[in-house]
Design a protein around this nucleic acid. Structure first.
Lengths: 219, 219
DNA sequence: GATATTCAAATTGGATCCAATATTCAATAT
DNA sequence: ATATTGAATATTGGATCCAATTTGAATATC
């Protein structure tokens, strides 16, 4: 007799749970930049001691999501316009490469999944959902590449700019433009046109960058 | 009366010291892949408790340098040939971009410094020193770009492949070729030819990749 | 003899406690 | 009124202790 593996992820230490929760809060902007992360306070929220909290914070620091100073504690790190722009440039270099590798490997299933995210993105009216669907759409298209290191690198970069990216989507016609570009990328992938998908992805990211920088300069 | 700031970096927690030491040991290959990291053992080495050791290990894990399993502990992570190749491709995409931005911003001082590393690399006969000088040479050329995110990303990628990169240098004419390519990159930078520097950097990295993969396939 | 079971040792994850440092704010001096 | 000192408080870094889990060897079972 065989049992299905249940995966009751007992593989979840308190530190991991706290790490994920804090990361999510930072990425979604629920923790504003500059906000201090008090170990005691967080420990109480999760009914743990400060030990796993410290581990979570030190891991976040390695991702650049918080900055901590000895005996002073950690704060959520922000991004200057220059840094944000740099990260968009970084993505604009990597993601076209990833999707070019990915296109010839995409299965009909992956394409269908991507299209469903694309459609959901188009009709969603919840700004918080946009960021999520946007990432899922692109990630689904990229996954077929099998480039795990690249994918991790891009995820990490997105984690850093996600708050700003969402802010940019809310702007003027940010959503409309993003949606239009998504459709064109999706079409290119379905046609199997890797070069077009790469070029459209490049423009998609640079367009978002310009829109974001315009927004940031007005603050 | 003014005093010079002394910067007695009291800003060094035990966790940071242990992190740096373990990272160095892994990068230099003194800790072989698969080697278990026993918290107790490491704590005794540094005359500390296991708490800062755990923090160091969890930070290393975020960099992909170790893999840890709940209640089982952490081991130094290795790289398959495919993963190593992927990381070289990643570098081959990013580093040309960085040096292209960097070239027009390089100061005579930076160029002189790079050349000195280049020369030192040429005459060094210590394999362990090669990796260090190689990184310093490239880092010096890249620094002028001011692309801090890109630089961190490349450093992180290099951390993952440094052991293999050094192994590759030891091969046949690895050093001779690397040295020749370094000179050509240095020359391009001194001429202010950003495109040439970028193209040479691209070839330099892909050449190392091919050499490495040839080496790995023989194991 | 090979496989399953039990149990002690080893190891990690986390809680509690203590030390080191920073911050706050009232008391004092200029 | 402002600047400075200094103690009280808050906060972080680390040590020690306990609980949960894994590992491996000894024993039992077929």
């Amino acid at each position: 007799m065989q049992f299905k593996s249940v995966d009751i992820s007992k593989t979840a230490s308190a530190a991991s749970i706290i790490f994920d929760a804090l990361k999510k809060a930072i990425i979604e902007g629920n923790l504003e930049e500059g906000a201090p992360l008090r170990q005691d306070e967080i420990a109480k929220m999760f009914n743990t001691s400060r030990i796993p909290v410290r581990e979570a914070i030190s891991r976040l620091e390695e991702h650049g999501l918080v900055k901590s100073q000895r005996y002073k504690g950690a704060v959520v790190s922000g991004l200057s316009a220059g840094e944000a722009g740099e990260i968009f440039d970084y993505r604009a270099i990597l993601e076209p490469h990833i999707i070019r590798i990915s296109v010839p490997k995409m299965t009909p299933k992956a394409l269908a999944e991507a299209r469903s995210f694309c459609d959901a993105f188009a009709v969603s009216d919840d700004p918080m959902e946009w960021g999520d669907l946007n990432r899922k759409f692109h990630a689904t298209l990229y996954n077929a590449s099998g480039l795990t290191f690249h994918l991790e690198a891009v995820e990490s970069a997105l984690d850093r700019v996600d708050r700003y990216l969402r802010a940019q989507l809310v702007l003027s016609n940010g959503m409309a433009r993003a949606n239009d570009e998504h459709l064109r990328i999706q079409d290119a992938c379905e046609r199997g046109d890797a070069d077009a998908a790469a070029e459209l992805t490049h423009q998609h990211i640079l367009g978002a960058k310009n829109s974001l920088l315009k927004h940031l300069s007005k603050l």
